[in-house]
């Protein structure tokens, strides 16, 4: 009885340990068809968004999205297109964070992924682009 119990415990522990081992050994996953599709979308959109980053009309928010921070910097003719670009970009960014979390079988990581991306977008931004600081204020890089 006791031997059986210990054997069972050991087996369970071993399986758990092995599972955990493989889980930690696997790198942070972000190569799914959904992620690739979102990346391509965003890549294509970036050439349209870049001038607005340059002018300061659009900035990088602290929650890993983009926002129209200075509508006056956008010519009237392209205000509508800027709004739709920002909306589409944010949809893709939200989906990207969610998809990466799902790719890692940890949907609860979405917010951590979002915050990581927020920091990295800002760090990778070109000088002259605007980003939102932790307290919500805008800062020019």
């Amino acid at each position: 009885m006791c031997k059986q119990l210990i054997n069972f415990l050991m087996l369970t522990a071993l399986i758990l340990f092995m599972c955990a081992g493989t889980a930690t050994a696997v790198d942070f996953e972000a190569n799914t068809p959904a992620v690739t599709r979102l990346k391509q979308n965003m890549q294509q959109r970036h050439s349209q968004l870049a001038p607005f980053y340059d002018s300061g009309a659009v900035g990088l928010t602290r929650d890993g999205l983009v926002a129209l921070r200075d509508a006056n910097a956008v010519p009237l003719s392209s205000r509508q297109s800027v709004n739709s670009l920002v909306t589409a970009e944010n949809q893709d960014r939200n989906a990207l964070y969610r998809e990466i979390a799902l790719a890692n079988n940890h949907p609860e990581w979405e917010e951590d992924i979002r915050l990581t991306f927020a920091q990295r977008w800002t760090a990778s931004a070109r000088s002259g682009w605007w980003y939102q600081q932790g307290n919500g204020s805008w800062q020019k890089k």
Binding site: D27, F28, A30, V35, K39, M42, Q43, Q44, H46, S47, L49, A50, P51, Y53, L96, I100, W109, D112, I113, T116, F117, Q119, R120, W121, S124, R126
Partner: peptide, 21 residues
Amino acid sequence: AAEKVADKIIEEVWQAGKGGE
């Protein structure tokens, strides 16, 4: 690990922007 992945994705996404640059 997430930071590394984020950097890689950002580099890919903004690559077009570098072209724009």
